[in-house]
Nucleic acid binder design. Sequence first.
DNA 1: TCTGGGGTCCTAGGACCC
DNA 2: TCTGGGGTCCTAGGACCC
Length: 440
Amino acid sequence: MDAFYASVEQAAKPSLRGKPVVVGGIGPRGVVATASYEARVFGVHSAMATAQARRLCPNAAYLTPRFSLYQKVSGVVMGLLAELSPLVEPLSLDEAFVDLEAGGVEPDPAAVRAVGERLRRDILAATGVSGSVGLAGSKMLAKIASEQAKPDGLVLIEPGTELELLGPMPVRTIPGVGPATAETLRRAGIHTVAETAEAGEAELVRLLGKAHGAGLHALATGHDDRPVVAERDAKSVSVEDTFAEDLTDRTRVQLELARLADRCVGRLRAAGRSGRTVVIKVRRYDFSTLTRSETLRGPTDDPAVVREAAARLLAGVDTTEGVRLLGVGVSGLADYTQEDLFAQAAAAETAPEAEGSAAPERTEDDGASSVRRWLPGLDVVHRELGRGWVQGSGLGRVTVRFEEPWSVVPGRVRTFGVDDPDLEPAEPVPLIRPVVGSGC
DNA sequence: TCTGGGGTCCTAGGACCC
DNA sequence: TCTGGGGTCCTAGGACCC
């Protein structure tokens, strides 16, 4: 999908179409998740600090992510992919490999291209946002082709043309080659895919280690027979929070870690899993990051057990100079729990349930949090004016633009007090208007 | 007003075992 | 009368991806 989160927001908010849109963390330490192509012109890109994006592109709309909406749109797209083949491997909400051969598509360029073009039409019709398609004989090439196809395009790499195409490209083009690998190769005088191939496997292994070196050599010489794998079980579950301000109070650090442990277990249980290894992550004031882990005798999904393990691990970490981020994870996942049933039953009586989205947004100071937070981008409904979305808020007021995905003209803007009883948060509206009487 | 959150895979050293 | 060789598990850290 093209600039996925930003595209979904533009589809949902007609007044933002054709305009720079940045979706990501809104707070002082937020980063950009996705920038629309209009915002990229200004140099805004993913993983950039939102503060820097604001300097580069002050007129963009800065929106908080709405993952539940993106998940719904993703589900529709994945459903379309499933119609093409039983072998679909999602990489994220907005990207997947499809094994067309397993779906019975003729291995003929014209036939394959037709399937890709039809898919692109279907995605747009079903979701209101565009996707790009890369078609090739291997995962690596298909991925590179899809990158080249963006935005809103299709690229087919015909068998036999791979090496000619790949050779002159920077080695960073190859998936798995990031900044560190590229720098190591650059110091060895290797810049392009062709130069990587010429270096030879032994040299790459010497530079990068056994697995990475051998793997890169294979890819650079066009060898990639990795299969498309349909469903892979998660191997770990983790949650983490960056705090608006560094935590220095040890008791507060312990409290936040316990909360994270509960959230992590909530997600673990929701997935019907349990795990044996508990990991905590601490990022300090200076961004130095460490992890500590402990492996239990058997898998658990007991919040008290995870909380206690996390607390033990924290005991060995110095946090006096300030904590920027805390995280809790569980790995070594199993589908079942083989813990003492007594202990589980006892814990179930005392442990507070901490399932995902139960708690409403907390205010920053964590005080008496009766104040509603109107985060930019979220949908609202007004008793008289109908559906709209938050453009911004502050100084006790919230500004709303009243429009829906299918509004023809940009909606009107109105400002209210944050406590206006006529204004309520609302669920996202579907991007494609439901057809009345369609029988669906 | 620098630097999110959720993952995967790999490496390397030490413990432990046969 | 120095130091084996493999295998697995655990821990910590790092690169990379979206």
